[in-house]
Design a protein around this nucleic acid. Structure first.
Lengths: 342, 342
DNA sequence: CTGTTAGCGCCTTCAC
DNA sequence: GTGAAGGCGCTAACAG
């Protein structure tokens, strides 16, 4: 590996001069030397050693992306196209800003923070954090942090952080309201697990709000907490078909994945969709397109999410701004063929 | 951040002693000091600074994972669940070996190699490389490299490398042969693009071999190169339904994604599957399960792929072995409902 | 068994 | 406009 020192030898100047050229401090280098050094750097394919950078505390240029997969692991990492997309887009944005992406999967906050300090990581992007973990992250490090889709309790936190989320409440409201407008009165809500994540909680609240406004009473049994283990979930759904599914004319799901999965099981067991049952998803990802009928769902702009996340993170890193940033992106009702008037 | 020097001060020993404790060189430290230092490390939550490690050439503990997305970009990064899975599993394996994963997406070999030397990366995993890029990678760096699903021309290379792939030829052969056993005679082959990747080339060769053995003649028009742009591809498929799709009773696809995508378009245009047309996929990923009829396809064990990749890479990194390693994992014919006797 | 020292590559400060 | 020197944290070599 070629170093500044070697380049200096080759050209016959001091390392300082080479460093000045690298950092484009033209006022400190004669035009002649500037050109000579530039040429040598190019010809020798100089790449700066990141170890030196880190050690000199000049910034590691690393953004750590942390996947919190403690819960719902089966669905998330392996099957959820959202993670696929967001990671791809985050990498793109990080690279375009001249940074590097270190990907880390962890259940524990302290593990993640060790990583952060070992590598002198400049900023963190955290996916899928529960509110309590989010608070730990914020309290235990000084580094800029951007959460994606986490609902942080603002009152508990007196430090800066970034969250880029979605208008989940509106999404839940809009999709439920759409079913109501189609004449549906018996509408169930299906989420994954019984302990709702912040995101699902908001969607659920939106659903209930829509029911309330339409004077439809919500009963606890209208909530279906689906197991994230495939087998258990499918058994449950088959049983539902045999028992009380007929009480409902519409089902609101918290994700396209769950909606498509359930729709297939229902169809396998003789339910005609949408004629006998309207179904809605959430995400507008590839699942809602690669199924029949195509799902009515709530769309989000994943690329935009990644873009904003990195934009605000960079702003914090470069000290250009601070304060709490909590942006909830707009959602869009995407009407397709899984829903009909009743 | 707490350093070795500070720990040394706290305990009242030299930095060397602390370093010896950290590296468990018990024979060089008195039991008493060992315990005292251990305690101080724990209490102060010591984390070693990676900059120091890199600078001292003691290994960066980074594995670079490079996604080559030059071609088929639309499908790969955004929609292909394989990348999702493999990245998840790679991260898991890398972490379990005490390493860190740096993810990088790049079209250019030289960019990737710059990254490698800047970070003193210890090993590379390269996904989706074309054979010519693979050769460049191997020739231009001394670091251990593991390819996934790349067909490298062994004769051209006189250095070590690892490739973990799949018995793609067998896969193509098995699935085609299965259709033939069901009585199909008119079988088309659908791939993405006209210029086949190494993987698809092998699958295609397997398909042709099966035809040959059954005395079925292959004509060039039996090969369908599908556009990776959704719109163009769908237009093409719709047109196919109107024209010469009826000449075929079975279609072999090179991926589940393409198979499901096409199956939906065919069904939308009145083709009954499998009654009028048998379809097969390749990958046995979530797409082949979340569609109706479920796809007959070729299964692979993605986790095993990631596991072996990192296992062999670690072996090379620790100098325990060398030589060319080219492992092609077994495939498995998964018979589901998209295929019927004719 | 313990401690001192030098050096990895880079950057900044300060003399010249 | 240029260069010498010191320090970031860690480790291995060597001296005690």
């Amino acid at each position: 590996m070629i170093t500044i020192k070697k380049i200096a030898e080759i050209v016959g100047v001091s390392p300082t001069t080479v460093s000045n050229v690298i950092h484009e401090r033209k006022n400190k280098v004669s035009a002649e030397n500037y050109e000579k050094v530039k040429k040598a750097l190019r010809e020798n394919n100089y790449v700066s050693n990141m170890g030196g950078r880190i050690l000199g505390r000049h910034g590691s240029k690393i953004i750590g992306v942390i996947l919190n997969y403690s819960r719902r692991s089966e669905i998330n990492i392996i099957s959820d196209p959202f993670f696929n997309q967001i990671i791809g887009y985050l990498e793109e944005q990080i690279r375009m800003n001249g940074y590097f992406m270190m990907l880390y999967t962890s259940g524990s906050v302290s593990e993640s923070l060790k990583l952060t300090s070992a590598w002198d990581i400049e900023g963190l992007v955290i996916l899928g954090a529960l509110p309590e973990d989010a608070e730990k992250f914020i309290q235990q490090t000084q580094k800029p942090i951007a959460f994606i889709d986490t609902y942080v309790d603002e009152k508990k936190i007196n430090k800066d952080y970034i969250n880029i989320g979605l208008k989940d409440f509106e999404g839940g409201y809009d999709v439920t309201n759409y079913l109501i407008e189609l004449g549906h009165q018996k509408i169930g809500f299906c989420a994954d697990g019984n302990h709702l994540s912040g995101v699902d909680e908001q969607r659920f609240a939106g659903y209930k709000q829509a029911l309330t406004e339409a004077n439809i009473k919500f009963h606890n049994h209208d909530f279906f907490g689906l197991d994230y283990h495939v087998k258990q979930r499918h058994d449950y759904l088959v049983n539902l078909v045999r028992t009380r599914l007929k009480d409902y004319s519409g089902l609101v799901f918290t994700s396209d994945y769950l909606a498509v999965d359930a729709m297939n099981i229902f169809q396998d067991n003789g339910i005609r969709i949408p004629e006998e049952l309207s179904i809605t998803g959430f995400d507008h990802n590839i699942f809602s397109e690669q199924c029949r009928p195509k799902l009515t769902t709530i769309g989000q702009d994943v690329r935009q999410k990644a873009k904003l996340t990195i934009k605000y993170l960079m702003r914090e890193i470069h000290q250009k701004a601070s304060g709490k940033t909590n942006i909830l992106l707009d959602v869009e009702l995407v009407i397709q063929n899984s829903t009909v008037p009743v």
